[in-house]
Design a protein around this nucleic acid. Structure first.
Lengths: 149, 149
DNA sequence: TTCGGTGCAAATACTTTGCACCCTT
DNA sequence: AAGGGTGCAAAGTATTTGCACCGAA
């Protein structure tokens, strides 16, 4: 899905939900759709030059998460980050690697958890709707620096 | 690893780190080692009948996590939960299923992420030290209740 | 005795809520 | 015009920090 397709999907979903097309919502959606990595409320606040109220940002993020347009994840930093949800027609999803040294968060593709779950015994009759998988470690850049010193 | 072995490992690690064997630390370690599921600071505070200061609990949890005796995880509730780390000799680890309906958290065994990673392309030369995997969905109990209504 | 650890009070960080005004529909 | 949405101020949680006293080694 391209960024444009994503934006169209976002806005169509807002309309379907009977939600108004306001400036803060459009700005947020555009920022998040364009971002390489998950953004925090604070990130968005700064990227909008603080022109959109932080409270509005929090409220909007909650709404968009409720509509399943965004996914909320905590990476051990003490706050949440948000990124676009995989589109309804997308079969692919991704997860993240977090460098515990420099804090960088990057995507990685090729999740095989769904296949893995078919061979896994789950408690009770638990019905899985989604999953989060995050790899922690050290990024190549930090490894190289450590080796040099 | 039995609960007793775990406790011994905990206390030996404290000693190695040159940390004193104090009441709050022993109480916390015992509580967490005995718990079926990850505990929050508040959980611990309540289970100690509020006899150990919340601040001390936070400080102790941080220390024990730094020593890698505990693992800290966020399950989307807005706060962290702590559970014993797999012992140094343990090859097995587990992850969790979270019922988004009733909030119950349960363990599940048989993680195949390590095997999966061998076939996965990671960004850069990222070196993976650990991973977290959490399944979200609906537990059997909640499914049954919904079906009945 | 010494110095790490604890408890209390206060501060900080993130997020939510109440309410009046604004602007999309 | 009407009602959802926004901004401001204030409140609510979760967690951390400063400092004096206490107690394990």
């Amino acid at each position: 899905m391209t960024k444009d397709e994503r934006l169209r999907w976002f806005e169509a979903t807002l309309e379907q939900a009977g939600m108004r097309r306001t400036l803060p919502r459009r700005v947020l959606l555009r920022l998040i759709a364009a971002s390489e990595r998950p953004l925090s409320a604070q990130d968005i606040y700064e990227q909008t030059a603080e022109e959109i109220n932080l409270v509005t940002i929090y409220r909007t993020l909650n709404e968009l998460t409720r509509l399943e347009l965004l996914i909320r994840t905590e990476f051990g930093e003490g706050f949440y980050r948000y990124e676009p949800a995989p589109g309804p027609s997308d079969t692919e999803h991704h997860h993240h690697v977090v460098c515990d040294n420099c804090g960088t968060i990057a995507d990685f593709e090729g999740c095989m958890v769904d296949a893995m779950l078919e061979q896994t015994h789950l408690p009770d009759n638990f019905q899985v709707d989604s999953h989060t998988l995050t790899l922690h470690g050290t990024c190549g850049r930090c490894l190289a620096q450590t080796a040099t010193k």
